[in-house]
Design a protein around this nucleic acid. Structure first.
Lengths: 216, 216
DNA sequence: TAGATTGTTAATCGATTAACAATC
DNA sequence: TAGATTGTTAATCGATTAACAATC
């Protein structure tokens, strides 16, 4: 473990995704009062090899101790620092149906990294009736609200046909990321917008395909 | 395009995931009345190269036509056949809170591949009160119900601390796959159980990390 | 036919795995 | 010290990309 001259800045995306999961795990262990963990144990929980874990952690600043595993609190704060988990950013929800409401209520239990500061829905009647803990607006106000509230992330839950119009407005407002729970897949119109499609129907099909191929 | 002697049977998992997305796209196009599409167009929508798409489709049985793109209906049914999308399997929901209810209601709009045939919750009072379109049971009945109804997939939505006990019971019943929406990450205890963790908090952190690394 | 687009082989790229010296 | 476990380099593996002949 000699002093290294790390070419920082680039973390491969698969490694980044695992680091987020490792962080999750560390949080859980920390809450349980554990103080130390080995790369082997982390790997077992994540379903990957211990080499892989050590490699991933290698992208961070010095964190481990040879022969004694990782100090949970130290590793946790190292990930926190490197990945910027302490910065709070603003998010909004588009689509205030049942799924949207579930997510807004989760927020009460404190989301990390993002604060939901606005909601949008194209149904104006619904906006007038509903009681929410955050201000809500009709979808045509998306661009202006995003700009004025400095919203960086949108969580889309509208299983709606006008989703293309909504995306357009989000981009117009200068959104930097979209997490899309609607069944219509979005593709990024430009390099600068990160889009993540989470679609339960595709998940179901994937599982079904796995089972089928396995059975044959 | 000469006759090939394909070593069928093994489709790499990333390719499998993309084939599911391609299928989604084809369904959408089909509904719109389109009849043909090129690998280039599919790639653009999925955000990957056209080579990649052709390679993926190459894992299927003969489907394309040189110089004329793919016949949507034909490609769609080829994927359907190879991945076994026509077989209906049984699924259950564990955790009948707000998210669980949302998923059960989606079911009305017809899930593909899986039919939700049972619900479970550890809160017995809730079971007595709630009105659902499917039969519901207390969680201790998980093993027997899974066996008797031949349930292969469980969708877990319980953000509950007794999730380990629940997993144990699912495995005991012989479940083949678990889609876990709860914030506690599950790891597969054996090769034969597929586990997919979908955790919005991890997603948020991942996005936050992307933004942070990009800004620096 | 000429243009377009596929299917497939080969080359590149990148991540995972293996191995082991460094070190607590 | 001896045992354990890290950090890092090298080897392997596999998927993506490139290229082009086949062909509609």
């Amino acid at each position: 473990m000699r002093k290294k001259n790390k070419q920082k800045g680039h973390i491969p995306l698969p490694a980044l995704a695992r680091l987020c999961k490792i962080y999750n795990l560390l949080e859980e262990m920390h809450d349980k009062g554990e103080t130390s963990i080995s790369s082997h144990d982390i790997g077992k929980r994540l379903g990957v090899g211990s080499h892989n874990i050590r490699k991933d952690i290698g992208y961070l600043d010095e964190a481990g101790t040879s022969g004694a595993g990782y100090d949970i609190a130290k590793l946790k704060s190292s990930i926190e620092f490197t990945l910027g988990f302490e910065t709070e950013r603003n998010a909004c929800i588009v689509g205030l149906g049942s799924l949207g409401s579930v997510i807004i209520n989760y927020q009460m239990k404190q989301f990390p990294c993002f604060t939901i500061v606005a909601g949008f829905d194209s149904n104006i009647n619904k906006l007038e009736i509903m009681k929410t803990s955050i201000p809500v607006y009709p979808t045509y106000e998306i661009p202006s609200v995003i700009k004025s509230k400095r919203i960086e992330l949108a969580v889309v839950t509208e299983p709606d046909r006008n989703i293309d119009k909504i995306t357009e407005r989000l981009i117009e407002g200068g959104i930097k990321g979209i997490i899309n729970f609607s069944p219509v897949m979005l593709s990024s119109p430009s390099e600068s917008v990160y889009i993540r499609n989470i679609d339960i129907i595709t998940e179901f099909r994937y599982v079904s395909a796995l089972f089928t191929l396995h059975d044959r």
